[in-house]
Simulated assay, not measured.
Amino acid sequence: MSLPETDAVGTTTAAHAKSRPQAAPGPLDGDPSLIGVPTFIVGSIALGLTLVGYVPAGTAGAPLAVILAATALGQLIAAVWAAALGQSAVAAIFGVFTGFWLSYAVLVLGLLHGWFGITADTATRSQALFLISWLATIVLLTVSTLRLPAAFTVLFTLIDLALALVLSATLDGSVTLQKAGGYTVFAFVAVGFYLFVHVTSLATGGRGLPLGRPAVG
């Protein structure tokens, strides 16, 4: 008699389980680059225009509205999205650039308002400290992209070059080097355009664009 009772209990339990509402699956899908790449592009354009002198000298705060409200926020959203998908490398890259853009904005605001004990005498070294720290970090990211398609390595190499040129311009007070850094920013923006067309094509059912072979297999 015990076996039929067990069957009845099991059947009742199974029926009850089926009758309970099931949790809806989370929206763990998509490509975070669709937010990360264009928001990176728009901030880079604003920074590049500032470096080449589109706005008058002394208006370093001009691109901050774009950088804070669009680029830094977009990088953060993309990083969180990628982390939720389990895309650790993508999350790391967007997370690092969240830090870059936020710290850039804080540095500029600090220079404009005399925060952090930054005075006119220490402004140059403070900017150089920022650029050296981020140049070393982005070089590290560049090395880590050698297993990715070549387009990503080209992008990060151009970012390295732009940072190096702006660092030299900061230390030497060279307007020419600063403008060269700005034009290099536009060069990696062009690569960003290409990558955004690639990810958008994939997201809309296309085949994507060729990105080149990785430098390291």
Score class of each variant (00 low, 15 high):
Met1Ile: 15
Ser2Leu: 13
Pro4Met: 10
Pro4Trp: 10
Glu5Pro: 05
Asp7Arg: 14
Ala8Gln: 14
Thr12Val: 14
Thr13Cys: 11
Ala14Asp: 13
Ala14Pro: 09
Ala15Ile: 10
Ala15Met: 13
Lys18Ser: 15
Arg20His: 15
Arg20Cys: 15
Ala23Asn: 11
Ala24Tyr: 15
Gly26Tyr: 11
Pro27Trp: 08
Leu28Lys: 08
Asp31His: 07
Ser33Thr: 15
Leu34Ala: 13
Leu34Gln: 12
Gly36Ile: 07
Val37Tyr: 12
Val37Ala: 13
Val37His: 10
Val37Glu: 09
Pro38Glu: 08
Pro38Lys: 06
Thr39Val: 04
Thr39Gly: 00
Ile45Tyr: 06
Ala46Gly: 03
Leu47Met: 14
Leu47His: 06
Leu47Ala: 04
Gly48Lys: 03
Gly48Val: 05
Leu49Trp: 02
Leu49Pro: 03
Thr50Val: 11
Thr50Gly: 09
Val52Cys: 09
Tyr54Ser: 11
Pro56Arg: 12
Ala57Val: 11
Gly58Ile: 05
Gly61Met: 00
Ala62Cys: 09
Pro63Arg: 04
Pro63Gln: 06
Leu64Asn: 01
Leu64Tyr: 01
Leu64Thr: 02
Leu64Phe: 06
Ala65Phe: 14
Ile67Ser: 01
Leu68Pro: 05
Leu68Trp: 08
Ala70Thr: 08
Thr71Phe: 00
Thr71Leu: 07
Thr71Ala: 10
Ala72Asn: 03
Leu73Ser: 08
Gly74Pro: 02
Gly74Met: 02
Gly74Ser: 03
Leu76Ser: 02
Ala78Ser: 05
Ala79Met: 12
Val80Asp: 04
Trp81Pro: 00
Ala84Asp: 10
Ala84Glu: 13
Leu85Asp: 03
Gly86Asp: 04
Gly86Leu: 04
Ser88Arg: 14
Ser88Leu: 14
Ala89Lys: 09
Val90Tyr: 07
Ala91Pro: 05
Ala91Asn: 03
Ala92His: 12
Ile93Tyr: 08
Phe94Arg: 02
Phe94Gly: 04
Leu102His: 11
Ser103Arg: 12
Ser103Tyr: 11
Ser103Thr: 15
Ser103His: 13
Tyr104Trp: 07
Val106Arg: 10
Gly114Leu: 04
Trp115Pro: 09
Gly117Trp: 00
Ile118His: 07
Thr124Tyr: 14
Thr124Asn: 14
Arg125Gln: 12
Ser126Gln: 08
Gln127Val: 10
Gln127His: 12
Ala128Gly: 09
Leu129Ile: 13
Leu131Tyr: 06
Ile132Thr: 15
Leu135Glu: 00
Ala136Lys: 03
Ile138Pro: 01
Ile138Glu: 04
Val139Glu: 05
Leu141Thr: 06
Thr142Asn: 09
Thr142Met: 07
Val143Gln: 13
Phe152Glu: 05
Leu155Lys: 06
Leu155Met: 13
Thr157Val: 06
Thr157Leu: 03
Leu158Glu: 02
Asp160Glu: 10
Ala162Leu: 03
Ala162Asp: 02
Leu163Tyr: 07
Val166Gly: 01
Ala169Trp: 03
Leu171Gly: 05
Ser174Glu: 13
Ala180Gly: 04
Val185Glu: 00
Phe188Asp: 00
Leu195Arg: 07
Leu195Asn: 04
Phe196Ser: 08
Val197Asn: 01
Ala203Tyr: 08
Gly205Val: 08
Gly205Gln: 11
Gly205Ile: 11
Arg207Pro: 10
Arg207Ala: 15
Gly208Trp: 00
Leu209Glu: 01
Arg213Pro: 08
Arg213Asp: 12
Arg213Phe: 09
Pro214Arg: 05
